[in-house]
Amino acid sequence: MYKWLSVLSMVVAVQAAAEPVIIPAGEYKPAVLLDETVEVVVMPAFKLDAAPVTYAQYLDFVLENSKWRRDNIAAIFHDGNYLKSWSVNDQVPAGYESKPVTEVSWFAARAYCDAQGGRLPTLDEWEYASNYYLQQHGLSDKAYAQMLFARHSNPTAYSKQEVDTTIGQLDYMHNRVNEWVEDYQLLLTNGDNNDLLAGSCGDSARFMADFGDASYATFFRYQSRSNYRPQSTTSTLGFRCAYDLEK
């Protein structure tokens, strides 16, 4: 039974094994100013998964890396709710194969990407890719902000939708799950006092490039994620992996 299931999951994974997308080099202007001085960030090219990692893909990882199985994971790497909705240690919930995997901690997400020869994208890489995606799709700031606020308003409705990992172009940046990034903590380098306030209780204007809806939507993604612990797992937080270009 289990053997048959894992064969099935491998079939799914083979289907899903589309190449990561190349995000070309360029410049981007962060919506959130972590530094007083840096306004335009120069980004080298890198590769990024086209879609968030799915349950089927994550199951393969768990089957091959037993220390990341639900019953084996070290307590220091999660908050007690790792893969909570899996009723069995080596089987994803029925019908979840093509949904973005959630209930994974930052440590687990990193381990997954490491096993694929990749890594979690940095915050800059993820946001730069997001801008690239918005340009590719011609999405206006307003449409982008509305999409993101809609997800913030009802994240579960989005996180439970499937993704197609075979389409070969960057997708699902804003309408599935919030995603882990390598340096997810909000690191404000423009001074000790700023760092202490860390964008709490109305203290956000100083970190905003402008006060448009789009910037707020982006800020909100940064800020809400930065309050998670690296052990945090939730049903609406997933990830995708980044890869260096071959040198």
């Binding site: 913030h152 964008g199 709490s200 800020f219 909100f220 309050n227």
Partner: peptide, 8 residues
């Protein structure tokens, strides 16, 4: 709640 965005 005082978590940013406090307005939201």
């Amino acid at each position: 709640c005082g978590t940013s965005s406090v307005l939201m």
